[in-house]
Amino acid sequence: MTIHNLYIFDKAGTLLYYGEWNRIKQSGITRDEEAKLMYGSLYSIKSFVNKISPIDSKEGFLFYKTDKYSLHYFETASSLRFVITTDTLSTGVKELLQQLYAKIFVEYAVRNPLWTPGSPITSLLFKTKLDEFIKNSPIFGLKNI
């Protein structure tokens, strides 16, 4: 059980925050490029899911899994997108993302008067609290190789 990395995008596709914990492989492109690629592929996945769905969907895309990791997606009503990658065995990641939004993002980013929505979050307090939150979550364990 482990958490690899986290992306927070706003509705325009700006990368608000990026955090990584147990990331072993880098994608080989700059962070900026990587964020664009991630946002673009999520956008495509969302439209893919809406089209291929046999019945009308409400929430749409939830997660995908490969043999090495899984990527979970959570979108708020205001189109903020939380994307987290974990190992394939983790459960309850959706709830974790919801809590992350309510307890960390709202508390330490939205309520921070110095942060303008739509700009990257640079607050050190946010970073510390997020780090603490992730490290205390049951999904974040030591990686056993």
């Binding site: 994608s27 690629l37 899911v49 769905s53 409400k58 895309f61 990791y69």
Partner: peptide, 20 residues
């Protein structure tokens, strides 16, 4: 999906889940 993987030598998408 395999390029953006945080772990080396990942395969592509095996399971993709939506609510429906």
């Amino acid at each position: 999906a395999s390029q953006l993987s945080p772990e080396p030598k990942s395969s592509g998408i095996q399971i993709l889940e939506a609510d429906t």
